[in-house]
């Protein structure tokens, strides 16, 4: 398995007791795109998206993204 970036969006949402729909409303990103991000299917993330999600979830980029090292 190659090294990949793991998106901890589902974990952060559970910790904040927030639904994907609520996050979508707050950051102005479509539910479909957030779902792609949550499922780890995204190829890249814009800084503006990262800032908006981190502000909404009151977290740091490092909390959201994690390096999933090759095993």
């Amino acid at each position: 398995m190659p090294t990949t970036i793991k998106v901890n969006l589902d974990l952060l949402l559970v910790q904040r007791k927030m639904s994907l729909t609520e996050l979508s409303d707050q950051v102005g990103i479509t539910l479909a795109n957030l779902s792609i991000l949550k499922r780890g299917k995204a190829r890249a993330i814009r800084f503006s998206t990262l800032v908006a999600i981190c502000e909404a979830l009151e977290c740091e980029p490092g909390d959201l993204l994690q390096l999933d090292r090759e095993t």
Binding site: I29, N33, L34, I36, L37, K41, A42, R43, A44, I45, R46, T49
Partner: peptide, 8 residues
């Protein structure tokens, strides 16, 4: 196009 579509 795929990269652009999957850039959130």
């Amino acid at each position: 196009h795929e990269v652009q579509t999957l850039t959130i």
